[in-house]
Amino acid sequence: MMTERTGPVPRASERDRDQVLVRLHTAYAEGLLDDRELDERIDLVLAAGTPAELGRLAAELPAREEPAARPEAAAPGTSGRFQMAYKSRLRRVGRWRLPARYTAVLYKGGCELDLREAELSAHVTTVRVVSYKSDVRIIVPPGVRVEAGGMGVSTEVRGAPSPSAPVVHVQGIAYKGPIEVIDHLRLP
């Protein structure tokens, strides 16, 4: 895309879109947008061609400060820290590396995060989930301590882990669909 006076116009990247989508879903979860507004803006984000177009879609929403990134580099093989499903499913099973902070955003889909064979890259792992009309299931291995909170988050984990056990902290916001944290003993 070119303009006569300024030359090339930068294109919106997938990362740019993801950041705006997270902002919109957070605003929805906080009651700043209704169902219709969220649906309309998601369609516009997916069609946006430039960062300026994306910026207009969330301009009036409060900006959120993200904590400063740690100076350490991600370890080789670390999976992404952010995943999103738009009218589809996310599924992570088998051997994979879970970063210390992981975020999943779901819109009219579903998610299964099976942590039984996952390598936890930190003693305390934070899993953040924003879910709209989606079913989310997080399966934890034996011996981990689960701390969960938010809106629409339920847990059913048996056993008493040791005080030094790794911690999986689940923070969730769910609307019209559950976020369930279960252990391997509760599987059907």
Rank of each mutant, 00 (worst) to 15 (best):
residue 162 S to H: 14
residue 148 A to M: 11
residue 134 S to P: 09
residue 150 G to T: 05
residue 40 E to C: 05
residue 77 G to E: 02
residue 145 R to P: 04
residue 121 S to V: 00
residue 78 T to F: 02
residue 184 H to K: 10
residue 57 L to V: 09
residue 85 A to L: 05
residue 91 R to Y: 11
residue 165 A to D: 02
residue 43 D to H: 13
residue 111 C to I: 00
residue 94 G to T: 04
residue 135 D to L: 02
residue 32 L to F: 04
residue 60 E to Y: 13
residue 148 A to D: 07
residue 168 V to G: 06
residue 84 M to R: 13
residue 8 P to T: 10
residue 76 P to N: 03
residue 92 R to N: 14
residue 73 A to K: 15
residue 145 R to L: 15
residue 145 R to S: 09
residue 32 L to D: 03
residue 37 E to D: 15
residue 160 A to Q: 12
residue 74 A to W: 07
residue 182 I to A: 13
residue 16 D to E: 06
residue 49 G to V: 01
residue 110 G to T: 03
residue 165 A to R: 03
residue 181 V to C: 15
residue 42 I to K: 00
residue 153 V to Q: 11
residue 72 E to I: 09
residue 114 D to R: 02
residue 169 H to M: 08
residue 118 A to I: 11
residue 169 H to Y: 09
residue 46 L to F: 09
residue 71 P to Y: 12
residue 182 I to N: 06
residue 162 S to Q: 13
residue 171 Q to K: 12
residue 1 M to V: 12
residue 13 S to K: 00
residue 130 V to S: 05
residue 84 M to N: 04
residue 136 V to F: 08
residue 54 L to A: 07
residue 67 P to W: 00
residue 139 I to T: 14
residue 134 S to G: 05
residue 136 V to H: 08
residue 50 T to M: 02
residue 46 L to R: 03
residue 90 L to I: 13
residue 161 P to G: 03
residue 78 T to V: 07
residue 9 V to H: 07
residue 34 D to L: 12
residue 177 G to N: 05
residue 123 H to E: 11
residue 72 E to P: 01
residue 31 G to A: 11
residue 3 T to P: 03
residue 106 L to F: 00
residue 168 V to L: 13
residue 28 Y to W: 11
residue 123 H to C: 00
residue 16 D to Y: 03
residue 32 L to V: 02
